[in-house]
Nucleic acid binder design. Structure first.
Length: 571
DNA sequence: GCCGTTTTCGGCCCGACTGTTTTCAGTCG
């Protein structure tokens, strides 16, 4: 079993224990451990028992359970637990507004053990009348069932950000609103989000809530109170608005940005220092005197921490690092001097090299890498060697025109299923940079795929493996391969790994990119731009890089053109 | 079930909104 599967088992155990009304803290312990396992950059298989217990939230009991799963592929305790309740109860808990208590009540009173039987009961009016439940709850259950049947896709960061910015600009038209900004997972730069959180500062919360719940894009108002309201938009996204006094904006921003795990961690820390932290500020536990509230920086300072950038707030070691002032100095968009993965109309792009170069230059870049597809990718009008040499000539001519910008000749060479490349070494040697990628045969076994990638990296001309895992968000999972071995080979062969900035790719993701950095592998950011406006995707890649704790020194794009060419050389 | 700069036992983050109630439990983030 892999990390993800083991974390899932712990989460399901927590859900079952919750229905069984077990000890709340025991349930939390399972969820807490699951969260830490999901955040791990290393495979659980690589730990020994003592090492497992170094994972936060994993003690003697859970480490033994992990070992059992790693060895046998299952967990006896879990198998027994599953028998104790109908599995449909877990689906019922997924319905918004239905938690463990209601699920249990429904099962005990009406033997409801699936979404279907729940829907039937609600339609025939059997729910209203149960102790503590009336018509309103019955209606909400039917609404909730409809919602989960639609199974909304994960919302891509860029889409959610546009929606959020529209709402914020509407809110800001209200003169009573002093400040408004994105919070939640969107502010932390997660690649996909479940909802949108917005924080506003105003002395007149009511007016803000009126405006918000009355916006054109609102389909349903889920909740509306004086401090907090939630709506669902016409395209199905839940948006939460929290309004606070401007005086506590910083505290509220910390609280509302999360993550939940990060918040728990800093609240625990506060408590140890005889402080209390909530969305209104940091307070002295005894005197209730306020220590900080208005600015985010002050909140962290009051806890003895340096400021933690939102992208790091995942309880992945950032609080510990902030304590000893060892947080990384994260890369920013302004550190980027080049785009290292760009297409043109020579293959499947829609603009000339010249237009792409002009755009990149105007963005302030010093160079860019033109990396059109190789011949094997017929669907993308991949270049054969003859056309590639013509393109190299055109780039030479264009480079004469530019004084302060350089175009590097490259190719995104297809890695064939046996690990050989789509161009011979004779051709590759004439390129400034070689990018290599898998575009087919995703279903190979993990072993074959690992060998395929390793062989490509061992080629003396391959400089960067682009979109290394091949996942497409909402469409296709990553292909199977041994990431640790690929990272090790990347390090040994001086091959960089890309964070592809295309919104659906963002590949490597934050966890993998951080692992690569830890092993000393260089990271390359490439937009994979197929048109001039797609250079903008760079900010998404930078965001992933920041979540991966990347600094300037880890990223090839921060080097001057000369340094870049020197650093990527093999041997 | 985890964890320890007061603790190896006794704690474990904090508050808002809904729907049902007449002061609160359940759910959510």
């Amino acid at each position: 079993m892999n990390n993800k599967e083991i974390a899932r088992v712990f989460r399901v155990i927590a859900d079952i224990l919750e229905i069984k009304d077990e000890n709340f803290f025991r349930i939390r312990a399972y969820r807490n451990a699951a969260g830490h396992i999901e955040n791990l950059t290393q495979d659980l298989n690589d730990f020994n028992q003592a090492g497992l217990q170094d994972i936060p939230g994993v003690g003697a009991d859970l480490s033994a359970k992990i070992i059992e799963m790693l060895k046998s592929g299952k967990l006896e305790y879990f198998e027994e637990l599953k028998k104790s309740i109908p599995c449909g109860l877990l689906d019922i808990m997924d319905i918004p507004g239905i938690g463990p208590k209601t699920t249990k009540l429904l099962y005990e009173k009406l033997r409801i053990d699936s979404i279907d039987s729940l829907e039937k009961a609600a339609r025939s009016g059997l729910i209203a009348g149960l102790p503590g439940l009336k018509e309103k709850t019955q209606e909400n259950i039917l609404k909730g069932i409809l919602l989960i049947k639609q199974k909304p896709e994960k919302i891509l960061f860029s889409y959610a950000q546009n929606t959020a910015e529209n709402i914020i600009s509407s809110l800001k038209k209200l003169k009573e609103i002093k400040q408004a900004c994105i919070a939640g997972s969107l502010r932390r730069g997660k690649e996909t989000v479940r909802d949108i959180d917005i924080l506003a500062a105003s002395l007149s919360a009511e007016k803000a809530m009126e405006l918000f719940t009355g916006l054109d894009l609102v389909k349903d108002v889920i909740a509306k109170g004086p401090a907090k309201s939630s709506i669902r938009t016409k395209d199905g996204i839940q948006v939460d608005l929290r309004v606070v006094d401007p005086k506590s904006f910083g505290a509220a921003l910390v609280y509302f940005t999360g993550s939940k795990e990060h918040n728990i961690r800093i609240r625990e820390l506060a408590k140890k220092n005889n402080l209390k932290i909530n969305e209104y500020g940091v307070f002295d536990l005894k005197t209730d005197k306020i220590a900080a509230a208005e600015k985010e920086e002050d909140i962290y300072a009051a806890l003895g921490l340096s400021f933690i950038p939102p992208e790091l707030r995942e309880d992945r070691g950032e609080v510990e690092a902030a304590k000893i002032k060892k947080l990384p100095k994260l890369i920013t968009l302004s550190d980027i001097k080049a785009d290292l993965h760009v297409h043109s109309e020579w293959s499947d792009g829609n603009a000339s090299i010249s237009v792409m170069a002009e755009t990149a230059f105007k963005k302030g870049y010093e160079y860019m890498v033109i990396s059109d597809h190789s011949q094997g990718l017929g669907i993308a009008r991949g270049l054969n060697p003859q056309r590639l040499y013509k393109q190299i000539d055109e780039i030479k001519t264009l480079n004469k025109k530019f004084k302060k910008f350089r175009i590097l000749s490259a190719a995104e060479v297809d890695i064939k299923s046996d690990g050989t490349l789509d161009f011979s070494e004779d051709v590759l040697k004439d390129l400034d940079v070689v990018l290599a990628a898998v575009h087919s045969g995703f279903k190979q076994s993990s072993r074959e795929m690992t060998k395929r990638l390793v062989k490509a990296m061992e080629n003396r001309y391959v400089n960067i493996i682009v979109h290394p895992t091949g996942r497409l968000i909402n469409e296709r999972p990553r292909y199977e391969f041994d990431f640790e071995e690929v990272v090790k080979t990347a390090k040994d062969t001086n091959t960089a790994l890309e964070i592809n900035c295309y919104p659906k790719r963002l590949d490597l993701d934050d966890i993998h990119a951080r692992r690569a950095k830890q092993e000393g592998v260089r990271i390359s950011l490439g937009t994979d731009a197929h048109s001039a406006e797609q250079f903008e995707f760079m900010r998404l890649g930078v965001m992933v890089g920041r979540r991966a704790w990347l600094e300037k020194k880890d990223v090839l794009n921060c080097l001057s053109c000369e340094e870049f060419l020197k650093k990527i050389k093999k041997d």
